[in-house]
Design a protein around this nucleic acid. Structure first.
Length: 552
RNA sequence: GCGCCAGUAGCUCAGCUGGAUAGAGCAACGGACUUCUAAUCCGUAGGUCGCAGGUUCGAAUCCUGCCUGGCGUACCA
């Protein structure tokens, strides 16, 4: 927010320069205000002169002189301006500007950091969407946390967020699941059985079969239809998945069953509509969708010669329903193995008359699991995977959330089981949480020593002049824009890095300066800042679904 | 073959809509608890930013080519 004040001041100076004929308006909106990387380069820096020099063919240092002179007039905001390097203009902010942040943060409390830039836009975040064939694996865990934290960041920035889980309980996979369950059922009863060749081998199937025996005895042993086995498995697995999600603090607004699209005739509708628009044709007994009309290399089958639709068709119908349900923005979180579906669905959306630009796909790469330094191959079928539940048991909810959030979605990540389990103390989540706990300890201590509730006093706050203090205040000032940036880019890891940076500055400060001392006015001023910082850390942690412990 | 993602310190990763001297954590080494919580801090060491060209005042970042890994490239989902 201070940055945008500065940008405004800079724009004013730019306009003045245009009016005075120092330069033309050609460079408007091309220059930026940045945070310098190194100490001593000001609180902010602008490339104004460098950008202008390129366009106006003038000497950058001279342009920098001119703009610097104008900027120094803004004394309420700016303390000092200097020119450096090839023509950077470094701006030193009036410390009072930082000090005034403190009451603002304290007064806003839990609302500090929230914004309404989303303008109440209705956004659906679709994620997890795992079919109920087994417990959630680590890969699903990544997606669950990624989707949920994106949803939370969007909520914090004024979006009207709806979390949806899309699943398919029909199809081949589920049939195999039912057959696997039946095989185990017969095995448990001591009957003859044949396990499906590509069946699900996890131990959970045995548990499900056992529950079926508890409920129905051996009455199903001659049952030809696989349905009761499939339904029992689905019920159990969904119960499992739901409780895993709940443990992680993830609550969906809706579970959308693919099958309902068939029941409502929406699949046929889509085919009819595409056919009417001339995007569909028959060949080799199959029905094809002309994806080449939307820039793709080849057309795609939407109904197989067997009469069964391919995954593309219900996906298109589902997305049409999303649009019909009046969402303004559709965010889909997908694993990279689903990348091929994206262009097809977007082509379908376009063909059906909706705007594909309203769909944003966040692809995340795989999680590779290592144990004893060796990679573990994961497969639901083979059941040699680690489930999210197991992970939660070992390391706890906060570290699991944090760990998945701190990696950007589109790079493969390595999940070192040894590190996550044995050395959970080293998990950076504690670094941030410990910071919050420390702040709470200071505030408790202050109360015990008779300090009143921190109350801001501008006259006292000028005592906050240590570089570490100004740096902390500066970091706090970027909290709202960090959330906004992270939310709009759908990149939770950026916000996590902000939190770690902020916590790091706090820990340094803590070790160097004592808050509560015999100097009462200074202590009061510092306590105000500590209170503000505690608000920021608490808001930050809770905004992405982490707890903010008051002691550790 | 084609498409997408990635290749940055010993390891795990940030930085990538061009900016000044490329960062953090872990591991290594050396320090700091009579002190508001040492789950912390301070310091040292560690780099041809995969390779080669190009674009320009300026490239880890943009463009081209190549190399390596992952995922796709189904009438599987």
């Amino acid at each position: 927010m201070i940055r945008s004040q500065l940008k405004k001041a800079l724009d004013d100076c730019f306009d003045q320069g245009v009016a005075e004929g120092l330069w033309t308006a050609a460079a408007a909106e091309k220059f930026t205000v940045e945070l310098p990387k190194h100490e001593g380069q000001g609180d902010f820096s602008t490339n104004f002169a460098l950008v202008l020099a390129g366009i106006e063919k003038k000497n950058p240092r001279e342009l920098a002189q001119a703009i610097a002179k104008k900027l120094t007039n803004h004394t309420e905001l700016i303390d000092d301006v200097e020119i450096a390097g090839p023509g950077f203009v470094n701006v030193f902010i009036n410390p009072e500007v930082w000090h005034r942040l403190i009451p603002e943060i304290i007064n806003k409390g839990a609302a500090f950091g929230k914004s309404d830039i989303g303008c109440g836009r209705k956004v659906m975040v679709e994620f997890v969407s795992a079919n109920p064939t087994g417990p959630l694996s680590i890969g699903h865990g990544r997606q669950a946390i990624l989707g949920d934290s994106i949803a939370r960041l969007l909520e914090a920035t004024g979006h009207d967020v709806y979390r949806e889980y899309y699943y398919n309980d029909a199809g081949r996979q589920m049939r195999v699941l039912g057959e696997s369950t039946r095989a185990r059922y017969l095995e448990l009863l001591g009957e003859e059985f044949t396990f499906p060749e590509d069946g699900y081998q996890g131990e959970y199937i045995v548990d499900i079969s056992r529950s079926l025996i508890d409920e129905k005895g051996d009455s199903l042993k001659d049952h030809a239809d696989v349905t009761p086995f499939k339904e029992q498995a689905e019920r159990h697995i969904f119960k499992d998945i739901s409780s895993t999600l709940e443990r992680m603090g993830i609550i969906f607004d809706n579970f959308y069953n693919e099958h309902s699209l068939y029941e409502k005739g929406l699949i046929d509708d889509v085919v009819a509509e595409l056919r009417a628009k001339g995007y569909v044709y028959e060949q080799d007994d199959a029905v094809w969708f002309k994806t080449t009309a939307f820039g793709q290399e080849q057309d795609r089958v939407i109904i197989k010669s067997s009469g069964e639709p391919t995954y593309r068709l219900p996906d298109m119908a589902y997305h049409r329903e999303k649009f019909r349900r009046n969402f303004d923005w559709l965010v889909n979180i997908l694993g990279s193995d689903h990348i091929a579906t994206v262009p097809d669905v977007l082509a379908g959306v376009k063909a059906l008359g909706y705007d594909p630009d309203k769909v944003t796909v966040v692809l995340h790469q795989f999680v590779t699991l290592t144990r004893d330094g060796k990679q573990v191959k994961m497969s639901t079928r083979k059941a040699n995977f680690v489930t999210v539940d197991e992970l939660l048991d070992e390391v706890g909810v906060d570290p699991v959330r944090f760990f998945f959030m701190m990696r950007k979605a589109d790079s493969q990540m390595e999940f070192d089981l040894e590190l996550a389990t044995k050395k959970s103390q080293d998990n950076p989540v504690y670094y941030v949480q410990y910071g919050h706990a420390r702040l709470c300890a200071i505030l408790r201590q202050a109360a015990e020593k008779g300090f009143a509730e921190p109350k801001f006093d501008l006259a006292e706050s000028v005592l906050l002049k240590e570089p570490e203090e100004l740096r902390l205040l500066k970091a706090m000032s970027t909290f709202p824009s960090s959330i906004e940036g992270s939310a709009l880019e759908l990149a939770p890891h950026k916000f996590i890095f902000y939190l770690m940076e902020l916590a790091g500055q706090l820990h340094s400060y803590y070790n160097k300066h004592k808050v509560i001392t015999d100097d009462i006015p200074l202590s009061r001023a510092r306590l105000c800042m500590i209170k503000a910082l505690q608000v920021v850390l608490k808001n930050g942690l809770e905004m992405v679904g982490l707890t903010a412990p008051t002691s550790m």
